[in-house]
Amino acid sequence: MTLQVTDLRVYYRTLAGDVRALDGVTFDLADGEIMGLAGESGCGKSTLGNSLVRIDGRMKYVAGTVRLDGLELPIADMDRMDEFRFKDISIIPQYAMSALNPTRKIGRMVADLLESRGVRFGEMRTELERRLLLVGLTEAVLDRYPIELSGGMKQRMVMVLSTLLNPSLLIADEITSALDVTSQRAVAETLVEFRARGFVKGMIVITHDVSILYQVADTLTIMYAGKLAEKAPTSVIMQKALHPYTDLLISSLPEVGVRFDERRLSGIPGTPPSLLNPPPGCRFRDRCPLAFEKCAEEPPFVEVAPDHSVACWKVA
């Protein structure tokens, strides 16, 4: 088991109180698993990704444990996490590619990053070049400035860099969303390639685009309002999702081949609850067509079939 997350709770501090962005999340990531994490904006999916790597000043660790390769991570402690970051657990944050320092050459930036982790750039250079070739970049990019690279090239560069030390876990947050479709595919397929070559053991791919996850992820986890709604192998989620939210979400996505005139899709009415003082019970209750009295209690996230967990009273 690469990663075991148990009852993780991370809140945001605000003047009006705590925003429960991550409110009791439990899941496992098997060795070699690519887990897709999807949900609407504000559901806490990015918070989950960040919490595993870096809990900054705005965030407040409340409860829960995270074990990576059997070892408990000190996620609440920014300084102690330093020795794990980049080496054992690596994140490609949202907008990482636009955050590259425009005045530094790529190679210089890579060297700085490696040195700051106590790794000699010289030792890694051959491996770096080998991996750049793998993603279709030449070592010439090291002498370029970020502005000279296209979005797709920058994103692949960032991917190579963040996996250079063969971390156990890679968290990729919305790495395809700012790219054109053709680059999206290249970037997504690179993820699979990295896993096949053993550069990383497990991956959490966070995106709002379920169709990308269908292409690359082994399992899909759907989040709603700070909690997990459902986790199952990708094909199971696609064909027979159990949680009503998952079901409605997937059936609201237009596919190539579906036409408005022939089959009118529908969205999910309503908006997610505020996470400042979330209502008790199931958080999807107000929008759920299946809701009944029991939903006033909070549904547990339980395994209803092998590798298939759901938080819904109608199913459990």
Binding site: L15, V19, S41, G42, R58
Partner: peptide
Amino acid sequence: PVTALTGAVAPHEAP
């Protein structure tokens, strides 16, 4: 502050 916060987390779709 929620709006401010969710704005920071997800700039385009603050609930």
